[in-house]
C-alpha cells in the first residue's frame, strides 16, 4: 500500500489537514490572520494535495485486476487470469510480466486518442450496470448475461503482435487472413482462432442458450 509515493503524499496531507481541523474545532479561536492561515492549509492547500494525489492513486488502483474483480460477478474472470494452470487466452496473457496485475486494463482499455477518458467513461457504465442489474445476481446467474459490448478490437492485439514478425507470418492462417485480421473483419479472439479469451463465460452462454432453446 505504501509503495505508491502519490498515496503516501496524499495520506500525509490528509493527516496534517485532519490535525489542523480538529485543533481548530476544539479551540475555536477568533478569526485572526493566523487562524485564516491555519484554515487555508486545513481546508484548502492540504485537502487539495490529498485530492490531487488521491486521484492519481485512485486512477492507478482502477487499473488493477483486483479492482476489476472486486465486483463479485467478475471474480471468475479475475480468478481465471490469476490461475497459473489455466490455458485460456486471458490467463496466458495475464502471466506476461507486462500485463501482470493490470491484465484486465491492458486488454480492455481503449487505446484511441482519449484512451483514459473513454476507458473510464466505459468503466462508469460498468458501475451503473452492476448497481442496477448485476448486484443482486449470483455468479452463476450473472455469467450468461455478461458479454463484451463491442467485438474485441484486433488493434489491441496488434499493439504487441505487430503482424510484421517473420514468426507470425510463418503461420498459414495468419498469412491467409492478414488483411482481414488487420482490417478487423476477422477477430483474433474468435472461436476458430485464439479465442474466446474467457472460455468459461462462453460455456455459460452456450448452456444458457441451450436451456432457453429446450424451453
Amino acid at each position: 500500500m505504501f509503495s505508491d509515493p502519490f498515496l503516501v503524499f496524499a495520506l500525509g496531507c490528509a493527516a496534517l489537514s485532519v490535525g489542523l481541523l480538529i485543533g481548530y474545532l476544539i479551540v475555536r479561536p477568533k478569526l485572526s490572520s493566523a487562524t485564516k492561515l491555519v484554515l487555508l492549509f486545513g481546508i484548502g492547500v492540504l485537502p487539495i494535495g490529498t485530492a490531487a494525489n488521491g486521484n492519481v492513486a485512485g486512477y492507478h488502483a482502477t487499473k488493477t485486476r483486483t479492482f476489476c474483480s472486486s465486483c463479485h460477478v467478475m471474480t471468475p474472470f479475475g480468478d481465471d487470469v490469476a490461475n497459473p494452470h489455466s490455458t485460456s487466452l486471458a490467463a496466458r496473457h495475464g502471466r506476461n510480466e507486462e500485463f501482470g496485475g493490470e491484465a484486465c486494463y491492458m486488454c480492455h482499455a481503449d487505446y484511441g486518442m482519449f484512451e483514459t477518458v473513454v476507458t473510464k467513461i466505459g468503466g462508469m457504465r460498468h458501475v451503473y450496470e452492476y448497481a442496477l442489474h448485476f448486484h443482486q445476481l449470483s455468479v452463476d446467474e450473472a455469467l450468461p448475461k455478461i458479454h463484451i459490448r463491442n467485438p474485441f478490437p484486433n488493434a489491441t492485439c496488434m499493439r504487441c503482435h505487430s503482424t510484421e514478425a517473420p514468426g507470425w507470418r510463418r503461420v498459414g492462417d495468419h498469412r491467409s487472413l492478414l488483411d482481414q485480421a488487420r482490417g478487423g473483419s476477422v477477430s483474433c479472439a474468435s472461436s476458430g482462432c485464439h479465442g474466446p479469451a474467457h472460455p468459461f463465460a462462453q460455456v455459460a452462454h452456450l448452456k444458457a442458450e441451450q436451456a432457453g432453446g429446450a424451453k
Partner: peptide, 30 residues
C-alpha cells in the same frame, strides 16, 4: 467555518477510505 471544517473532514474521510480500500464504490464516492 466550523461547518467548512466538518465538511472537509468528511471529504477527507471518503478520500482516505478510497485509498485504504480501492474498490469501485469508495473510489467513486471519493
Amino acid at each position: 467555518l466550523a461547518l467548512a471544517a466538518i465538511l472537509t473532514l468528511i471529504g477527507l474521510g471518503l478520500m482516505v477510505w478510497s485509498m485504504a480500500q480501492p474498490t469501485p464504490m469508495p473510489v467513486i464516492l471519493a
